[in-house]
Design a protein around this nucleic acid. Structure first.
Lengths: 155, 155
DNA sequence: TCCGATTAGATCGGATACGATCTATATTCA
DNA sequence: TGAATATAGATCGTATCCGATCTAATCGGA
């Protein structure tokens, strides 16, 4: 169909942009999860941080940041909030006072052990395709990150 | 998805969460695009808004928001910035003073006609898989949005 | 015609992201 | 040892997102 010249020349429609698909899928995740997470007093990012924390105890902020692709400027405020909420603990490492060790508290662990996950996975409505889509998006992300790394300074 | 109640008591790995894959893919897009968009003085969101604006002239803020899955609280500041940058025009509709009509300026159109797109698509590194991944993510997003609509107030 | 309801944006506050910068601690090496 | 350097977090300013609320304009019914 001959759309106006501008939409055609190079001008694909917005919906054909992968970046927009991911961008809006991320918004959609946030909204789909919100009512569920609200019940636990969590935000989307806080929930993701808790999952990363469930993988190991005594992680440093940097280690956590590598998993989440975030740095201390973003993580510190979030971790402080999670600490205030009682879901995690933050302590300076006595062996190296520069580092802060972060762990789930019992309350935090209980939270994740609830069926929070089941209700959330269901919201994707992807069925059997779930793992396939997941793999593709992971590869996409890694390609993008790799492409970015080609710069000069630190990632 | 019928995943076992708990893949491990420690929880599945963060990387196995689709929500995290999308979340981090979105972060990765932002970073991969940033050096390219910086050269044009654009942020990621502003760029996406411009693409949506390239599809039609004289769109209302609401119409634009439907495409972008955003509302006036998010769009208004962004559109004001794009107006200040000279890439778009904002005018109250004389027929209905409540509505604001938004269009690309000549400068905005020139910007999108540059090869900004080509360099950006390349960064995904997905090759032939590009359209497949794109479709899956779109469906995922729509499922999530549909799931959300059932819950609360406005659709 | 007038008043209430609706609609379209705009504003405000809280919570991310992120670049730039700062502080405190640790390490290196002359 | 001590100054320069490096590292780990923390802080700050800007730009999104989003819920809640506000204002202005339009519409609808009596």
């Amino acid at each position: 169909m001959t759309r106006s010249p501008k939409a055609d020349s190079k001008g694909r429609k917005l919906s054909s942009f992968l970046c927009f698909a991911v961008y809006s899928a991320n918004l959609a995740f946030g909204r789909a999860y919100k009512p569920i997470l609200d019940a636990f007093g969590l935000t989307y990012t806080q929930y993701i941080a808790l999952i990363a924390l469930s993988e190991a105890d005594e992680q440093t902020v940097s280690a956590l940041g590598e998993k989440l692709f975030l740095e201390s400027n973003t993580l510190t405020p979030i971790l402080k909030k999670l600490e205030q909420s009682g879901y995690i603990s933050r302590t300076r490492d006595p062996a190296d006072e520069r580092q802060v060790r972060v762990s789930l508290t019992a309350a935090g662990r209980r939270l994740l052990d609830k069926e929070i996950n089941a209700s959330l996975v269901e919201a994707t409505g992807l069925g059997d395709e779930f793992p396939i889509v997941q793999k593709s998006v992971v590869r996409l992300r890694d390609n993008l990150l790799h492409h970015t790394r080609g710069d000069s300074k630190k990632g």
